[in-house]
Computed example of a mutant assay.
Amino acid sequence: MKVTDRQKKKFLQSLKQARIEAGLTQSEVARKIGKSQSFISKVELGITSLEVEVFLRLYQLYDKPAAYFFSAFSPK
C-alpha cells in the first residue's frame, strides 16, 4: 500500500490534535517519552519519520483509540 501525501498529512494532524486534546505541549510530551521538543515538532511536521516504538509511547500518552490515528488510511 502506498501512503499518499494526503493520508500522511491527515495522520500527522491527528498526532498533533491528540497532543493538544491531551493538554500537553511539545516540550511536555518530549520529556515524558525521552525525546527533545524539536524531535516532536519535526514528527508533527512530517520532517522526521515516526518509529513504531515512539508512536506506541505517544498512543499510550494521548489515550486515543487506534482508529483516531489510522482513519487517515481508511478507504473512502
Rank of each mutant, 00 (worst) to 15 (best):
M1T: 13
M1S: 12
M1P: 00
V3I: 15
T4F: 12
T4V: 13
D5E: 13
D5M: 09
D5A: 09
D5K: 15
D5G: 11
K9M: 01
K10S: 08
L12P: 04
S14A: 13
L15C: 08
Q17V: 11
Q17T: 15
I20S: 07
I20N: 06
I20D: 01
G23Y: 11
G23V: 14
G23W: 05
Q26C: 15
S27L: 11
V29G: 02
V29L: 02
R31N: 06
R31Y: 07
K32F: 07
I33F: 04
I33P: 05
S36K: 07
Q37H: 10
S38Q: 10
S38A: 13
F39W: 09
F39A: 04
F39P: 05
I40K: 01
S41F: 12
K42M: 15
K42N: 15
V43L: 07
E44H: 05
L45T: 11
L45D: 12
G46Y: 09
L50R: 11
L50A: 04
E51H: 10
E53L: 02
E53C: 03
F55L: 03
L56P: 00
L58N: 13
L58I: 13
Y62R: 09
K64E: 03
P65W: 09
P65I: 04
A66R: 08
A66C: 04
Y68H: 03
F69W: 02
F70S: 02
S71D: 13
S71L: 04
S71R: 14
S71N: 14
A72Y: 03
S74T: 09
K76V: 08
K76T: 08
